[in-house]
Amino acid sequence: MGRKNNNALFFTCSLIEYIGRSTKRKRCKVTDFLGKERIERIYEYADVFHCDPIEKTAAEFIEEAHITEGTFDNVKDCRYTVPGYWDIGEVYERLIEDVYEEKNIVNGIWEVYHSWIDAQISDYNTDFYYQPRDYIAECYKEGVIL
């Protein structure tokens, strides 16, 4: 567990973040639209998908998964500097790496995005998303912000 810098996981989480921003959807809803099989495919072939611009890859998955426009706009609601989608992708990547075994990564993606912590990481008006990775992992395991 942990500290591997899993590039496929980083790309998968960043793509989920990018899709969420472009469709104004909570990230758990993005994963619902994508479904576990598609997420597994993104994860498995991340090195291939990463060769294209993320905008193109996102557009293809938005169309394929029929992701409709929502009303969740945490970028617009942010009163401070908006973190980049790669930055937020890295927060999710590190959390999933720190808490789930390599063989359970896709399940870990699903669990994390469907947990309470998704709303915390997506609230850019707090400083939670840029706390140390160990702290974020401990909060996740305990089920509360410590």
Results as ranks from 00 to 15, higher is better:
G143V: 01
W86Y: 14
N7P: 11
G89E: 08
S115C: 11
Y92C: 01
S22G: 12
F61V: 11
N5K: 11
Y140I: 00
K26F: 02
E44D: 06
I96P: 02
F128W: 00
V144C: 02
C28P: 02
V30F: 02
A65D: 12
L146R: 10
Y113Q: 05
C13R: 00
E101S: 11
F49W: 03
D47H: 10
I145S: 00
H66S: 15
G35F: 06
V112F: 02
T68M: 10
W110E: 13
W86N: 12
A137E: 01
Y130H: 14
E60P: 05
Y80L: 13
M1D: 14
E93L: 06
A8W: 00
G108Y: 10
E111P: 06
A8S: 14
E17W: 08
C13E: 07
L146T: 06
K29D: 10
F11V: 11
T31F: 08
E101A: 12
T68G: 14
F128H: 04
A46C: 03
T126G: 01
S22D: 15
I39R: 01
V91F: 02
R27Q: 13
N74G: 15
K24M: 12
I62S: 07
S22R: 15
H114P: 15
K26N: 04
R25E: 07
V144E: 00
Y45C: 07
E40Q: 11
F33G: 12
F10G: 05
S22C: 15
E64Y: 13
W116D: 01
L95D: 02
K36S: 10
W86T: 15
E60V: 11
R21Q: 12
D77F: 04
T31E: 09
T31P: 03
P53V: 09
F49R: 01
E55H: 12
T23K: 14
P132S: 04
N107L: 09
R27V: 04
G2T: 06
F11H: 05
R27S: 05
D47T: 14
E90C: 14
K141C: 00
I136N: 03
C28S: 15
H114V: 06
A59V: 05
V82F: 09
I145Y: 00
Y92F: 14
K141V: 04
N5W: 09
A58F: 05
N5Y: 09
G143L: 01
C51M: 13
E37C: 07
M1E: 15
E101L: 13
K76M: 04
D134A: 12
I105G: 13
L146M: 09
G35S: 05
D87H: 10
T126M: 02
S14V: 01
Y45V: 04
R38C: 11
E102C: 05
I62N: 08
P53Q: 07
Q131P: 02
T71P: 04
V91N: 03
Y80C: 09
Y18M: 08
V30S: 10
N104P: 07
F10A: 06
F11E: 00
Y124Q: 06
A65H: 08
P83M: 06
I19D: 10
G143R: 00
G84H: 14
F61C: 08
V82T: 08
W116P: 01
D52H: 13
Y135L: 01
D77A: 13
H50E: 13
Y113T: 07
